[in-house]
Design a protein around this nucleic acid. Sequence first.
DNA 1: CTGCCGTATGATATCGCTATCAACATTTCT
DNA 2: AGAAATGTTGATAGCGATATCATACGGCAG
Lengths: 342, 342
Amino acid sequence: MIKPAANKSRASGRITLAMVAAHAGVATMTASRAITQPDMVSQALRDRVDQAVVELGYVPNRAARALASSQSKVIAVLVPSLSNAVFTEVLAGIQDALDADDYQILIGNTRYSDKEEEKLIGTYLQSNPDGMLLSGLSHSPRVQQILTNSRVPVVSMMDMSTDPSQLTVGFSQVQAGYAMTRYLIDKGHKRIGFLAAQLDERTLRRAEGYRQAMQEAGLLDNKLEVMVGEPSTIALGAELLGRMLAQAPDCDAIFCCNDDLAHGAVYQCQRRGISVPAQLAICGFNDLPASAWMNPSLTTVATPRYRIGYEAAKLLRAVIKGEDPANKQIDLGFTLMARESA
Amino acid sequence: MIKPAANKSRASGRITLAMVAAHAGVATMTASRAITQPDMVSQALRDRVDQAVVELGYVPNRAARALASSQSKVIAVLVPSLSNAVFTEVLAGIQDALDADDYQILIGNTRYSDKEEEKLIGTYLQSNPDGMLLSGLSHSPRVQQILTNSRVPVVSMMDMSTDPSQLTVGFSQVQAGYAMTRYLIDKGHKRIGFLAAQLDERTLRRAEGYRQAMQEAGLLDNKLEVMVGEPSTIALGAELLGRMLAQAPDCDAIFCCNDDLAHGAVYQCQRRGISVPAQLAICGFNDLPASAWMNPSLTTVATPRYRIGYEAAKLLRAVIKGEDPANKQIDLGFTLMARESA
DNA sequence: CTGCCGTATGATATCGCTATCAACATTTCT
DNA sequence: AGAAATGTTGATAGCGATATCATACGGCAG
């Protein structure tokens, strides 16, 4: 019943599906089905194929599969940073959502650079991905064109879009910035500084929310803004606190555009003997793990990063399957965490 | 001179190399060479091909390339965690080292699980990677066998191996654990606790170093060890500090197996009114960014994570090219950062 | 002028798998 | 019972690139 194994000794020592099929005494196509669509093959043959797979140690060749089926089973994910905990949690959500689906996730780090993003998208397109997850809404015109031409489904993460056709999962950065500023205003602060670094699109949106709230309260003053393009770090937060106090000595509260800066600012206050929040209130953005534990604990905005990744991946998967999702824009909101520092 | 473009309207709307070649009026093979080995093609034809590539917006198909050349240009990287800053810095080093080489990096997160690792390696082997970068030395027997069978070059990162044939880049975790413990002993501490979580192989090696030093000084006492398997977090550090003090109230110093735990322990001391280092010295491991800035600043061991990634990737690249590296074991050492907390 | 050689170009045969349709066996329906 | 529907299996033809070998050509030695 069982034919002898194929012995075309190919150059590559690799075990191929054809060898498995020969070993099991079935056609290659049947072996293929036994592996990828077991329901379509009779129990008896399926068992023989399965056994042959084990005996020969067969490992399918993804490249061949992709080529023949024009389905890469690859999803490309672009994040602006891997050292930022925000995005690693987004990635965790994505991985969990895609876990069982046998998707290969291609993680790209754009380092907050449009050029890098363009380069990465170009590279990833060579892998013919079934879908892409991008961070942010704004991309260079060339990127937009490349994406349109490629017809790859794309879901944008982290912020809400005004374009209703764009698939988006996130929360409104503007509203979050507004909410935090309002909180400080309601606490009675008048001279509220805004400390920002990196100046990526999310930061700029938060700044927008800040200005909106300050404007409404008649408190807007550009002396209260310290914004620099360097990457956001604790060390920079410490430094920028100094710059802020030099620029606006009467400042009574500081809204840092993220927790790293806020941590640095708090530590620096401690070193200078400035008491937080008595003399200066400080708050951050993102609610990193340390924020709840440090002393004083940090008032900040908790953002649903894990869920953003999770829901974005689920949405993308649905679109890849050809479904037309009822909800193209998923707003996951945010939570203001009032703690000791403000 | 230029023939009309090919118009075999393939099912996939994709622009193929054949179309580019037709558009440029050359053979497919010539177009292929013009793109991948430009030196082998005359200036004139090369220009025509380049132009056709741009005009048609040609994107090479990586799967086809991999299949035909049996070179995937993929390097798989396995790390136990993405939320741990240590490994994201390793990744940064890898990316920088491999930047120009047109390698595709497949990042896998094993979540500190042997099973996950096995699964990921199985998946990644389907992509026929040119090489692999693994974290740690110890892998399940099955993984070892799979790797041996696949004949994929592997470089192990993070620790030093005793097997001289194994390609390794890292530093001795045992020595680092020993050094930190000695430091505390030399400072006059007698009851030095060891706080550990996660209990992955690196943590266990550090524990080994700790015990060795304590043994030598005649200070070893298992009441001084608190080790749990849960993931390492700031919150857990805070909790375990309590457990340590309950278990060994006379403890006068604590060596935390990583900075997260140490941060939690320090914060918890502050809440309990225990002064660090006067009443209790605390030190960590890894030197995360916050450690230098928090108050008190944290005594810890700085580890060359970025360089580990960088050198490991360079070593792997050399091996892939067929070179036989003189130095198969690269020890990048570590640095004890003496700060305020101990 | 013949013939050999190195270089640029092209034709063809795979790489390993799946899509597709044909062939046949087995039910189910009228 | 005969036709139609259903379910399995197999043969064949690509998917889009590169490896390999063959061919054409100009240059140079003899």
